[in-house]
Each structure stands twice: as C-alpha cells, then as structure tokens.
C-alpha cells in the first residue's frame, strides 16, 4: 500500500527520505525545512525540491506549518535533536497524533527526553509512533528487540557514535593524539565543526536512553539526566598504547541495563565484536534464553537513516 508522507526537516535524513520514498512505493506529499514547505497531493518531485532549496534557500512557497494541513498518513519527524523539552520536535509529534496520524521519528529528542509523555499521547491517538531511525541509523535494533520481546532482552550495549569511534580507532591505529585525529575527522566530514555532542558522549547516551526506555517497557522512564555519561576527550594516546600492549583497545561503549544507562570509554579486547573500527556501529543484545546477538552496520548518514525511517513506514502498512 502506498502511504503519503509529510517530512519535517530538510537535512541529510529528511532529504534522503524524499529521495528514497518512491523506491519503497510511498509518496512524499509535504516537505518542510525550518522556514518553508512544499506541498503536492500528487507527490513531490525530489529533484525539483532539492533544486529550489539550493537555488533559493527554501523548499517551497508555503510556511512550514502548512505541512500539517496536507492530506498525509505518516509524519516523518527529522528535525535536529534537541534536549530538555525536545521542542519543536515534540510539538510536531503531538500535533500529528492529535490528528490521528502515524509518526516516524528520526529525531532522538522526544523519545529520549519525554518518553512517557510521548507514549501517553500515542495511547490517545489512532496513530502510532515508530523510531527505529533514532537508534543506530540503518541497524535494525528496535525491530530486533520488538521481535525478541523487550522482556526477553536483559541488556543492550555497544558503540552507537561513529564520530567518537572513528577518533578512538584511528588514534589507536596510527598512534596519533586526540586533537590531530579530531581535526582530520572534521576535514573528512566525519566530525562536525562543534563535535561536542559526539565526543562528549551525549549522542550515544541519548540512544542508550532510548534503548533503556524500550527495554524497561514502561516500568521506569529514563532521560538524559538519568544517564552516567563520560566522553572521549580524556582518553590520550598513551592510554591506547597501554591498552594495545595488552591486546586491548578503548571504545566509547554505551550500556542500557537494569542498573540504568552508562556511556564511557571502556577497555575491551582487540578483535572482539564491540571493537568495530571507523564509523561502524554495533549493538549487542543480551537475551534471557538465547545468549548474545550482535548487529552492526552504518549508524549514521542520510540514506542509511532514511532506510530505517522507510522500514518503519512500511511496518505501518
């Protein structure tokens, strides 16, 4: 069945959803950036929208809010993640649910910071909320947990920030210091000009907070403030040298367990499943009856994250 998508957020993820929706048999009928929107009940032409954005800095004539008046089935919320009240993302979700539409989130804010509020709104709506894209990009983490059943998964741990992992694995492989590798990562576009979110562990923590919320299945609500978070700025090359001498390495590891959420640089054996290199991500699920499951892949990027968004959309059919 073809669904009509309204996409909020014209960054890498939103733009890729616009490009790839047709490949999944869906139409994007509304598309908005922070200042404008384009609406076409027959489905937008991706290249025309991208051209307009490049040429005029807007995606269309209408105001962003016009998206909500379009005739759509699923709201794709792909605006930048914000902390605290998770606005404006949260209000976007609230509005779509009030209109009994489905919501697919790529934005981590509402699921990490206001999980209970979100679930309460969902309970009163005909629509449902999906957020596979918020955790681990293309890696099907949440759908795997859903298949296993959250009560059968006792813990999730792993590497869910490609920037921090790129920096640590390159420092270890090349014997370079943090500042040097960070500058290189910024040149390559792997790290942003302001890398705080990634190198201080906040991005990874948000994802593990989401996992904790999902695993706790409504019993305990977690938010970023509940997480113990330490980034990688205090991991010098000397620590990686010493780890390597003993067959170990250091990775920014997140954990969502019954004890809560923790993100910190940790010593792990070289060559172990969690010692992924570069921007690769991995999640390890600890199951009650079936041991460990490891799922790895690309945890970020426009088409990768859009793939998770469109998988969520397909689940709504």
């Amino acid at each position: 069945m073809s669904l009509r998508l309204a996409v909020l957020g014209a960054g890498a993820v939103g733009g890729s959803v616009l490009d790839l929706a047709g490949d999944y048999g869906h139409d994007v009928v509304a598309f908005a950036d922070s200042s404008s929107s384009a609406v076409d009940p027959a489905g937008l032409d991706p290249s025309a929208v991208h051209d307009r954005k490049e040429r005029d800095g807007v995606v269309g004539e209408a105001a962003p809010e016009a998206v909500f008046d379009a005739d759509y089935d699923v709201l794709v919320e792909a605006t930048p993640t914000t902390l605290g009240d998770a606005e404006p993302g949260f209000s976007h979700v609230e509005r779509a649910l009030a209109d009994d539409r489905h919501v697919v989130l790529a934005n981590k804010g509402p699921v990490a910071e206001r999980y209970a509020d979100l679930r309460a709104l969902e309970a009163e709506s005909e629509g449902t909320v999906q957020f596979e894209a918020a955790v681990g990009g293309a890696i099907p983490v949440l759908s795997t947990i859903s298949d296993l059943g959250a009560p059968h998964v006792t813990a999730a741990r792993g590497v869910l920030n490609g920037t921090a992992n790129f920096i640590l694995s390159r420092m270890a492989a090349e014997g370079l210091d943090y500042e040097h590798v960070l500058a290189e990562a910024q040149d390559l576009g792997v790290a942003e000009a302001d890398p705080t979110f990634d190198v201080d562990g906040i991005d990874a923590a948000l994802k593990f907070v989401i996992l904790a919320n999902v695993l706790s299945d409504g019993e305990t609500e977690y938010a970023l403030d509940d997480a113990e978070v330490e980034g990688i700025r205090n991991v010098p090359g000397t620590a990686l040298d010493l780890a390597a001498e003993d067959g170990r390495t250091v990775r920014l590891i997140g954990e969502a367990t019954a004890d809560g959420v923790r993100v910190a640089p940790r010593l792990i054996p070289q060559g172990s499943a969690l010692s992924v290199t570069g921007t690769q991500n991995i999640v390890q699920l600890e199951t009650k009856h079936a041991g460990q499951l490891n799922i790895s892949g690309r945890g970020a990027g426009g088409p990768e994250t859009a793939t998770a968004v469109l998988s969520d959309v397909s689940r709504l059919e």
Binding site: R157, L267, I268, L274, Q284, E286, Q292
Partner: peptide, 12 residues
C-alpha cells in the same frame, strides 16, 4: 585522575 574501566561482560 580519569579511569578507563574494563567492560566486564559482553566483550567477547
């Protein structure tokens, strides 16, 4: 000082 702790479980 900062501590880099080992990951006890799941690192196989």
């Amino acid at each position: 000082l900062h501590v880099v702790e080992p990951l006890a479980e799941g690192s196989q």
